[in-house]
Write a protein that binds this DNA or RNA. Structure first.
Lengths: 206, 206
DNA sequence: CCCAAACCTGTCCAAATGGTCAAGATTTGA
DNA sequence: TCAAATCTTGACCATTTGGACAGGTTTGGG
């Protein structure tokens, strides 16, 4: 976009963005305070308004930055690939993302729960095609007898649900397991469980 | 609680509660407006304040009413029961709840995502024991060789995640599937899919 | 029929908060 | 070097909104 990005712009832009994501994830669009975001970013509130016209535009920018990041994971799986290997990789990648940046997942989840008022077209123009393409590949695996038949779209939803759960419901999971934090051990244990259970659930292993 | 519940109290109490749940689910604690809740309930705002000291107490009351409802489903499964049948029933019951009252699930989800500031002790005093008891039963099934070994707690999380997904992410699911609403057909299709996939994933069928 | 308790509501207000603005500082580029 | 562009910020304001309150109405037991 910017042809000659100036130094301070980039630096503060990033600081604000990061602060906004945290704050919006923690309190939602309405609960988040511009002052709190400014404080988190270490800037006066008026400076935040220099970069973002208003709260909503900052919120939308935060959502967009997340969606861009997730889109990078738009790999080019084809009919040729091995279902077991591919789905395993997909699941593990989703788990990794969930633990790497729970705030992103939480922010996105809150927006969806509240009816996706600011990203409704994203759902239709980006997510729907993405899911349909994935589903087509999975369908082709089924047609080729590489795995038993079931609904590919519901399978994708199940993978999303099981993996994002650990980001969105972090507090609940930790409290119930009586742990202070996620650690490497737990993460790989969770990855293994989800991957194995779903792959077996699809009839791909055992 | 009330020994001689007066008529109007109960009626308006329920109306406010229902309105509050909808509104809080849709906008979150901070986004919800007392005026909007009052409007939904068909009462003047001041009347809402007659029943509930302030916004937070109404919010907590709404959360409590949900948790009470969910606690009813505290059935007494024992080691004697059949794992397949019991888990199948559990999954279907969760799916039913998700579709029956998505607002409840959404409200609860939002609270958890935001760190469960108002129900943190509920997580430890009610949910943790509940999960541990369930897990013990599942563990006993595994010990008895009725099903392959895996982590019972993670299994419970997976069931929660896969089922609640359809309440919380309702908009996303519908947009991606290009449907205006959930219908009976879809609901039973989803129930079947989740139940079959998870049961197979546990090594209980096929 | 009476009266106290419960219930209802129009009106008002203090505090919180998003956003503006104008003046000043800093950087850039020619 | 210096002016234009970019950036920074304290002070300020309009609006929204949760909540108080006082005075009114209804209800039900005695």
């Amino acid at each position: 976009m910017a042809r000659n990005p100036s130094r301070p712009r980039d630096k503060n832009f990033a600081k604000i963005m990061s602060a906004a994501r945290e704050e919006f994830a923690l309190r939602g669009l309405n609960g988040a305070r511009m002052q709190a975001i400014a404080d988190r970013a270490g800037l006066p509130k008026a400076n935040v308004h220099y970069y973002f016209r208003n709260k909503v535009s900052l919120y939308v920018a935060a959502l967009n930055s997340i969606m861009e990041k997730w889109n990078d994971f738009f790999d080019g799986t084809t009919d040729e690939d091995d279902p077991t290997e591919t789905l395993d990789l997909f699941i593990r990648e989703k788990v990794r993302l969930a633990f790497e940046d729970p705030s992103a997942s939480k922010l996105f989840a809150t927006e969806i729960i509240q009816g996706a008022p600011y990203i409704s077209n994203y759902l239709e123009e980006v997510m729907r095609p993405w899911v349909n393409e994935r589903a087509k590949v999975i369908q082709s695996w089924m047609d080729a007898g590489k795995m038993p038949r079931s609904d590919p779209v519901l399978l994708i939803f199940m993978i999303w649900a099981s993996t994002q759960h650990y980001a969105d419901f972090q507090v609940q999971v930790l409290r119930i397991m009586d742990r202070p934090d996620y650690d490497e051990n737990l993460v790989s244990q969770i990855s293994d469980f989800i991957s194995e259970t779903i792959l077996r659930g699809c009839g791909l292993i055992n």
